[in-house]
């Protein structure tokens, strides 16, 4: 993951186009801000090393 602070404006526009999700202009800024928060949180998850044998639980048994 990119360690530099990123401007997600372009990402939000392009990813929204890729998934076919029109984002009305009046919501755009807030969606970008929400995505920035998600990205900061995701960094915590992405920076954690996991061994190759750690698999998703297909049926989750706690």
């Amino acid at each position: 993951m990119n360690q530099e602070p990123m401007d997600y404006t372009t990402y939000v526009e392009q990813a929204a186009a890729v998934v076919g999700l029109p984002i009305p202009p009046e919501y755009h800024q807030s969606v970008v801000e929400n995505f920035e928060r998600i990205a900061a949180i995701a960094q915590l998850v992405m920076e954690f090393p996991l061994d190759d044998d750690v698999e998703i639980a297909p049926v989750f048994e706690p």
């Binding site: 990813a15 999700l21 929400n34 995505f35 998850v45 954690f48 998703i56 989750f60 706690p62």
Partner: peptide, 26 residues
């Protein structure tokens, strides 16, 4: 609304890492 709109744009790799981390943490 805006949290849902932003959440729809999360790359799969973030989601998958979160799910794999869940198994490790469990």
């Amino acid at each position: 609304r805006d949290r849902f709109l932003a959440g729809a744009l999360i790359p799969a790799t973030w989601y998958l890492q979160a799910q794999r981390f869940r198994a490790w943490y469990r």
